[in-house]
């Protein structure tokens, strides 16, 4: 276990370095393009004096590195700057929205794992002609259905026809629990459909290639039946290959959620990102992009750690 711990520490260091690099690049990019936010905020009618005093107020007259460092320090102490368009601290605006988006992603991730992994494992036996066609059609269809389309269809069927929730009227969990939960639930379903198709496909081809490996023959020669060959040997070996894929899926879910939040009217961070992009509210865009990137880096970190624990081949040579 010591090797694992050492790996975690090493990986953690890389994680922090990546995050700093990403935040630097994002900050740099936005400083370059944002032009003069003070001018943007005040409009063309403002006087030079007004603009200068607002720039001072926003700290825009300091050198780049100083601004970056104070922004970075602020980021980790929860002070994310002030939104241009709302004139409010970014964290107040983003915090609860972030929780909402992450919960929807995690819910969807859970659905993917619970549905796709068992189906992927058991579909490896489906080898008849009809089964191959059915499987391929369902797979390709699943991958072809964009979440925002299912979102519209669900909000029509379950929201308008069955009145399970009112799309767009998200009051929050404390106000009305079930309708809020329904928003997240259907959002998660929309998000998971194409990814379930992808994961089943991935899982299936991994199980098949593992089934053809020599250790399976050994396991059969010892008297294992098909089920225990799967559960004791093949499943774990297949997971090792699928986990990095799942890590990436977890990362992508938050970004894919942007569209679903828009469709179902969930006031999540993605929807906020889009409105902020349209309003050129760069402090907000910048913060959300950095947070989402951290999430991406973090997901791959978790996937790497799990693989490290599962696969002794990776542990060797790390120390």
């Amino acid at each position: 276990m010591n090797e694992v711990l050492l790996y975690v520490l090493k990986r953690l260091l890389i994680l922090v370095l990546t995050m700093i690099l990403v935040s630097f690049m994002t900050f740099g990019a936005f400083s370059l393009i944002s032009g003069d936010p003070a001018r943007t905020i005040l409009g063309t009618e403002a006087t030079e004096v007004q603009v200068r005093s607002l720039r001072h107020e926003l700290g825009l007259d300091r050198p780049f590195m100083a601004r970056y460092l104070s922004w970075l320090l602020g980021f980790f102490s929860g002070n994310l700057g002030v939104s241009f368009s709302y004139r409010q601290p970014v964290w107040e605006l983003v915090g609860s929205k972030l929780m909402l988006s992450l919960s929807m992603s995690l819910l969807s991730f859970l659905m993917i794992i619970l549905v796709a992994i068992p189906l992927g494992v058991f579909s490896y036996k489906a080898t008849g002609k009809t089964m191959i066609w059915l499987r391929t059609i369902f797979n390709q269809l699943g991958m072809a259905i964009p979440p925002f389309f299912t979102g519209i269809v669900f909000s029509w069927i379950f929201g308008i026809l069955f009145r399970l929730f009112t799309p767009g009227d998200f009051k929050g969990f404390s106000v009305s629990f079930w309708p809020s939960f329904m928003h997240l639930f259907f959002g998660a379903v929309c998000l998971s459909i194409p990814r379930i198709a992808m994961t089943i496909r991935m899982m299936r081809s991994t199980v098949i290639s593992e089934m053809n490996k020599a250790y399976v023959r050994t396991a059969i020669s010892r008297g294992n039946d098909r089920r225990s060959v799967l559960s004791r040997h093949v499943l774990k070996n297949s997971l090792v290959s699928v986990i990095s894929f799942l890590g990436q899926t977890l990362a992508e879910l938050v970004c894919a959620g942007i569209v679903v939040e828009q469709v179902l009217g969930i006031p999540g961070v993605g929807r906020f990102l889009v409105t902020s992009i349209l309003h050129r509210d760069y402090p907000v865009v910048q913060t959300i992009v950095v947070i989402l990137t951290f999430w991406v880096v973090f997901a791959s970190f978790i996937a790497d750690i799990i693989n490290q624990v599962l696969d002794p081949r990776l542990r060797r040579g790390q120390t």
Binding site: K213, A214, Y215, R217, A219, H233, K236, N237, D311, P312
Partner: peptide
């Protein structure tokens, strides 16, 4: 009992 040719690939790498 069976002993196969390639001991490395004939064993489950994760067990």
């Amino acid at each position: 009992g069976v002993v196969f040719q390639e001991p490395m690939s004939s064993m489950d790498p994760l067990m």
